[in-house]
Design a protein around this nucleic acid. Sequence first.
RNA 1: GCCAACGUAGCUCAGCCGGUAGAGCAAGUGAUUCGUAAUCACUAGGUCCGCGGUUCGAUUCCGCGCGUUGGCUCCA
Length: 648
Amino acid sequence: MSKGNIQLTLPDGSVREFPAGATPLEVARSVGERLAAAGVAGQLDGEIVDLRAPIGRSGKFRVLTPRDSEAGVVIRHSAEHVLADAVERVFPGTIIDAGRQDHSEKFQYDFRVDHAFTPEDLERIEQEMARIVKEGKPFERQVVSRKEAAEIFRKRKEEIKLIRLEDIPEGEDITLFRHGDFVDLCRGPHVQRTDQIGAFKLLETSGAYFKGDERNEMLQRIYGTAFATKEELDSYFAKIEEARRRDHRRLGKELDLFSFSPLAPASPFFHPRGTIVYNELVALMRELYQEFGYEEVITPQLFDVDLWKRSGHYDHYRENMFFSDVEGREFSMKPMNCPGHCLIYSTHAHSYRELPVRFADFGRLHRYERSGVVQGLTRVRTFSIDDAHIFCTPAQIGQEVSSLFELMFRVYGIFGFQQPAIYLSTRPEKAIGEEALWRNAEAQLERCLKERGVEYTLNPGEGAFYGPKIDFVVLDAIGREWQLGTIQLDFNLPDRFDLTYVGDDGTEQRPVIIHRAVLGSVERFFGVMLEHFAGDLPLWLTPEQARVLPVSDRFMDAGRAVRDRLVQAGLRAELDERSEKLGAKIRDGELAKIPVLLVVGAREAESGGASVRVRHRGDLGTKDLDEVIATMTTTVHKRVLNPWPEVQ
RNA sequence: GCCAACGUAGCUCAGCCGGUAGAGCAAGUGAUUCGUAAUCACUAGGUCCGCGGUUCGAUUCCGCGCGUUGGCUCCA
């Protein structure tokens, strides 16, 4: 390789040499004019680069065209600029801030305008964008000095850009991208021409704090999405529609599981059916607690604030707590169970021989959440957690965390969640306890993760105020992420409550507390699980496991006998006593997502069986009642996902 | 908390430019006695979220409050 040249390995495996500073566009041209014309960006060792940005080093290189899925990022990023351009044209005098593309398939741009964007405005802006796209204006990349950039934005009266310019660290290249008369401070990469933005749509407007800080002014944000093709755009909306179909708030109402009242904002009411589901979730955890050595406790709802002062919640969590004054004494609803468990622990002396002590608690918690943040079951003001606190010796942390991993994977497997992603969160700014304690706790968790050989991602500064944590994030049936389980190490609370145990040398030692939850909030899990299953709950969890449908009133007694036998076998079965035709009963049973419908008519009344119709499977024919009961009870007890497995 | 939209029968929704409301489903009653996703008829059901204001008159326009939704910020 001659001096000053770079070597690029192309997708076909060939290696070509180019002068350093050659642009991806030039590389593309050397492959073929058609590739060069179709290209939207380059990719060097996985990193997406602008077609006009000089390549500074050797590596694996390819040209991205609209057919590559990675092209979407570039297209959306370019659509941002077109959006800003269109807004400036439709609303002259608008001060633009900056665009961004979040990790989803949306892009956004923030504006300072004196009037609020309406849906009609969005339509006008969209039309203007369509015009700009159609014009096929080339994007131009330009590297400028700080002074030049400042000059340009000053002239354009883009005051926010000047602030953004100052935020660019000294020594970094300042690049501008232009298309037509529009110019923006931007790193890129961008498509070559605006008409490479194949399909786009503006979605919604919202307020957004400047630089994401609520002390700053609020700008107006417009969200949109863009893809290379109309088909991709359509499938984006299909995905949104699917999520809407699964929305737990809609399902909760349709299946009569829970509701909300304005008289108790953000506080769910679980109806009889929802309560069955809720209790099954709790029962699952109770069953596993037996196996994993937990002891359940029940603790008070309301505590003197002295408790919270002692635990540190009063100083660090007060803005999330509900208070009440009684007899001139200040009380607070508990937002967490841990201090109560510390009080139980300290009711008697402990020996190292009895540790670990594991207190489980499904106690109801109340946390004040700002009115704008609450949402369905996933963000509420009262909930319970499958909460437990493990009091152990420092030496036991490893084995406890290890056993927790086993518990977590067991539970998530029961629901068919994918292998969870794991995050390690470290000391936040607002934390209690000495730096050294924190470092020790973080190191211990890290060691546990390494010893297990699990992959994890570091989340610096995201820990709880009392200790670092490991979070478990699962993917649901349509690929969305949900944070469920958590393991939090706490060296602070034992200190604050002066908890001790007697070590094998007879001296007083300080235990460690591990806060942990598997489902997390039962309410949130309920919502997540409901969406994951799209309302089709597994047999063990569903409120009505079977519904008996007499073909006509004449077979009501036969139907009742079938229902009674199922109920005696411990199944949740009901009888459709309405004087409806079979078709209507089946339709209503299906709409209620009942897994097993049992039809009873002349034939069945004769033989004593029932005709079995399984959801998503259809009519399985007449079966003996003993077989129906055996299949169903086994499926329930084993918590099998499939409501009617052929082979048990 | 902040920005915006929305709030009409149990549910889903219609209701133009201000003249006190309508559909489908659900519910009730009656008829029908039916074999794998909707039988027919009739009946009842409304502080049009609440409170103020403008107006001869407000579900409709304006203000405030409450709630919900989508974002921002925050979070189990």
